[in-house]
Amino acid sequence: MTTKLILTHEVTGLGEPGDVIEVKDGYARNYLVPRGLATTWTKGAEKQVAAIRGARSKRAIATAADAAAVRDKLEATTVRISARAGESGRLFGAVTTSDIAAAVSSAGGPTLDRRKIEVPAPIKTLGSFRVHVRLHADVSADLDVEVVPSA
């Protein structure tokens, strides 16, 4: 059996917020709905879909050409994030996607949506890391992040 849902957040491999999808009942009941990633589809939810799509279009980069320009700017820069660390270089906590988005903005880069930043493994040590940023449906960038100890 399948269930018809409306995505409220981006889910890799399924779609963007506002997309109407059909998935297996168990996936909907046990994963998507409890985590707030989707809501059940109803006839009255069409207004909600329109509102989600409108908000998404305001946040999104308009064209692939604009996204390519942003990609070139991001790949040319290295973002530095200072964090508290112990003697062995292990952080007290972790560097989050929100920290990365804020560091890019403060370095003079574009404003990024934290949900578009993909960190392959949690950043919990000092050093250099590479994160993936989805800018547009066809355009993505690899961003170099350097975590340095705070003074």
Rank of each mutant, 00 (worst) to 15 (best):
E87D: 14
M1Q: 10
P120G: 07
V131M: 07
A102H: 14
L143H: 09
A107F: 09
L126Y: 11
D25G: 09
T39G: 08
R71W: 04
R134S: 09
K58I: 12
D99A: 11
R35C: 09
K58C: 02
K124V: 15
V119S: 05
D144L: 14
I6A: 00
T63W: 09
R71T: 05
L112G: 07
I117W: 06
G109V: 13
K58P: 00
T8K: 03
D19H: 15
T78V: 08
A67I: 06
A137G: 15
V131S: 05
T78L: 01
W41C: 12
S150K: 10
D138F: 07
P149A: 12
Y27R: 10
R53M: 03
E16R: 15
T12S: 11
G109Y: 13
R59W: 06
A60I: 00
V104K: 01
E10G: 12
A121W: 00
R130S: 11
A28W: 03
G54Y: 05
G44V: 04
V147D: 07
L135W: 00
L74V: 06
D99P: 09
D142I: 13
T12L: 15
L14P: 00
S106C: 04
E87M: 05
L74D: 07
A45T: 15
I81P: 03
I100S: 06
P120K: 07
